[in-house]
């Protein structure tokens, strides 16, 4: 079984499946309404020039979030691009 890591630790091009969104409140609600929830496949597209925020692709669109927000997303790494 592949190790579980957080979204922050993924490299550009890597794909993963969301295992857990470990936060509630505004941040959790916002992530969920944008479709970032357990079972969702994601792929890291890139990072901003200062390595933060991170850009990911999910459900056919692109989303960006800060690294300290990505920390709440536990993922299971899939195949690399």
């Amino acid at each position: 079984m592949t190790p579980e890591v957080t979204l922050r630790q993924l490299r550009p091009g890597q794909r993963a499946v969301v295992k857990k969104v470990g936060t509630g409140g505004e941040l959790g609600r916002r992530m969920r309404e944008m479709g970032l929830l357990p079972g969702t496949e994601i792929q890291v597209i890139g990072r901003a020039p200062l390595r933060d925020p991170v850009e990911i692709k999910l459900r056919g669109y692109n989303l960006t979030l800060r690294n300290n927000e990505a920390d709440f997303i536990t993922v299971e790494i899939g195949e690399a691009l």
Binding site: E26, R30, M34, Y61, L63, E69
Partner: peptide, 10 residues
């Protein structure tokens, strides 16, 4: 600070 989470439209 509040959430950043934002769409990057094509």
């Amino acid at each position: 600070q509040a959430p950043f989470v934002m769409e990057l439209p094509p």
